[in-house]
Amino acid sequence: MTLALALTPYVYGLGFFMMAAGLLIALTSRHLIKRLIGLGVFQTSAGVFYILLSKVSGGTAAIRLEADSPAARSLASRLDAAYIATHGVDGVVYSNPLPHVLILTAIVVGAATLAVGLSIIVRIRETYGTVDFEELAALEAKALRDGREDEA
């Protein structure tokens, strides 16, 4: 367990770092497509956090095995009998399936966001002729001034 204890801050820290980096890209990049990619990294890293919670040491994927099947026996041979008795379900130790389900949902949501975002980018490029954040901001500021003068 000492190794796992030492790894804990490291793996969560990496997860949090990836979230922060993705967020930074989504907020600061000048190219709109890169912003979306950063957003995707941010969303995926949130999933990393959930999956980190789901891992059970010595566990296997949450697909139920018969306790006396060869697969179950080979898994059991790697583990302490007392460990299996405490943490196993019918003789096999599984990882927690709930975060898997949640992140499956989140991945699909991320892809949906990406599709809509890219469609908007394609329209922006067709309308403004650029996908550079600074150039867009300058164009909008100019349009706002012109609008005031035109309509006034």
């Binding site: 989504a26 912003r35 908007i120 980018i121």
Partner: peptide, 10 residues
Amino acid sequence: ALTAAFQYLI
């Protein structure tokens, strides 16, 4: 609306 929607999405 396009740039506003993109900002809204992010």
